[in-house]
Nucleic acid binder design. Structure first.
Lengths: 122, 122, 122, 122
DNA sequence: GTGGTCTAGACCACC
DNA sequence: GTGGTCTAGACCACA
């Protein structure tokens, strides 16, 4: 898999897991790939995958069953969704609008620009 | 000064300089503090300040007059404003709205949340 | 059954067996569930149960009658009680009070805290 | 340094750090040894020390200043003390007395045993 | 088979 | 100099 150079791989893998849980590819209360398998699939060292798994484990998104593997929690999708929404609303949203104000832009200008962009590029 | 530990200090200082130029604290074509003074004021290693100054210098925002010090360019404020607006509109805006959609949030919900936040915290 | 993930399951099962013997649920000189049944009941790998049974067997608490099953010893309850008391008095008690001293707590404070806890939680 | 085999080294190092902070060897708001130095001193791999430091960092006991090193927090000692007391009172104390009851022992018996032990061994 | 831990060693960004 | 990350590879306990 291709990773971005700017952010640590283990965080990008964590992000990948969040997405798979949100998208339903990893259903609640079901087993996720073993550390080794995941490492092979992503062409990454097992230690790196372990680090990602531990992050989600501390957040209560996944849990380890000794000698068996990692499982998503009963309400994994909900936890991830709340976490992501909270991050967005409490951190990204305020800074976004603060930035907008600081640059002397109005919401209408921004939205207009967004429309033209969509037309041209995508 | 207090720095965020997530982003490099030299980038945070560069951001500080942008702000001072935009706000008019550093006027066009005028001298800005020496590397040494700035380092003392920010309680930071002079090398770090130098690195920040070099960034702005490469962008043509400030220039170095040997043996004298750093000066803002004739049109420093304009350059910074354009740069920042471009970054914002072309990069932050699209990713912001993409993120919003991904989380299943509408612009109205986001704006509403922003209002309640302003009431409580700020 | 729910197991704590910090300590090995086979030790937790052994502890469970000690309790059942102490409480009289498993009487002296009587048959205890087969490895297979126990494994099914606890939703655990039979190997794990076997490992637990072996521990108690080595301590002379239970014994294996080939082809028949595991039986508690004639004086199983007594053995377990002595073992547990010895462990408690010689190991846990000293470390508990050492810890208490180290944290600058008095026995009275601790007892008081215990009372308030009982009132609220249990 | 000599480490216990049963608990991971990185946790034992974390415990060591707690003690040094509680004892005042590491004063509040002062620098602690670099990861490399600590690794050499403890005859351990730097990665292992890093892991310990990160635990204390997440708890707000120590903090990292980029490119400089780790520093104890302003109120490091207080945080550690509270954490330790909380762990003791909320977890060890209840289980200790539950265990005592379960074994049919009274507090007086336990205290008496503790006295005789002190006389003989220490 | 599973994950947990540790080492040795490397490279990098940052100060 | 500092820490952060990653790899390769090993050993271990556990199920």
């Amino acid at each position: 898999m291709l990773f971005n150079n700017h952010t640590p791989i283990y965080l990008q893998i964590a992000e990948l897991l969040y997405q798979k849980i949100l998208s339903g590819e990893y259903r609640n209360a079901s087993r996720i790939p073993s550390v080794r398998d995941m490492a092979v699939a992503l062409e990454v060292n097992p230690n790196t995958v372990t680090r990602s798994y531990m992050i989600l484990q501390e957040e209560g998104v996944i849990e380890n069953r000794r000698g068996i593997g990692y499982y998503t929690n009963e309400d994994a999708a909900l936890i991830v969704e709340k976490k992501k929404q909270k991050e967005f609303l409490d951190s990204e949203v305020p800074s976004f609008f603060a930035r907008m104000d600081q640059l002397g832009l109005t919401l209408n200008e921004v939205l207009k620009h967004l429309e033209t962009r969509k037309g041209t590029i995508q």
